[in-house]
């Protein structure tokens, strides 16, 4: 058993986008703040800090989660992928095009979170899992698009072979 005092700085090593980062942090530091302030990965946006808006969504061991509801100290050896990690993927170009051509974003603040969730759900869809897109998208608040462009982008990506369900 290990106990860290509240005012102690604790050494942690986090695996983010395929790199290991070692930092000294307070036990209470939120993962969203760790990514933004300690690593400078400002693509993860903070919109509500109570788990509703979805702007801070990242992949944790491949599953989409809210980084504002996770403590950096509690991540352990979990693999974290942020929007900056997805951008490096070869398949991301098609993704970016689909979002842009279908005007799936306006102010762009919710976008990285939306992209992370849609990316993961499309992977599941291409593994022949059935994906309920209302379920996926309802985990994100977008105040600009009325979600119309986002649905169109998903349909375009699926038409290119990214899964079997309809948006």
């Amino acid at each position: 058993m290990t106990r860290y005092a509240k005012d102690q700085r604790v050494p942690v090593t986090l695996a983010v986008n395929g790199h290991e980062y070692r930092r000294w942090i307070e036990p209470r530091l939120l993962l969203s703040d760790f990514l933004r302030d300690e690593l400078g990965l400002t693509g993860t946006h903070v919109g509500c800090e109570h788990g509703v808006c979805g702007a801070c969504t990242i992949l944790f061991n491949g599953a989409p989660v809210r980084s504002c509801l996770k403590l950096a100290i509690d991540v352990g050896d979990g693999q974290i992928t942020t929007i900056e990690g997805l951008v490096k993927d070869d398949e991301f170009d098609a993704f970016r095009q689909a979002f842009s051509q279908n005007h799936a974003l306006q102010c762009g603040f919710c976008t990285p979170g939306v992209v992370v969730s849609v990316w993961e759900a499309l992977k599941r869809a291409s593994d022949s899992e059935s994906v309920d897109w209302n379920d996926v998208l309802s985990g994100h608040l977008c105040r600009c698009t009325g979600y119309v462009g986002i649905r169109r982008a998903i349909m375009a990506l699926q038409a290119k072979g990214g899964g079997k369900t309809e948006a």
Partner: peptide, 21 residues
């Protein structure tokens, strides 16, 4: 909206947890 400070405890077993509680 940031949490107030707290001690963080990483138990290794269920027994550890009961002892902490």
């Amino acid at each position: 909206m940031k949490p107030a400070p707290f001690d963080f405890i990483r138990p290794e077993s269920v027994d550890d947890i009961i002892s902490i509680l």
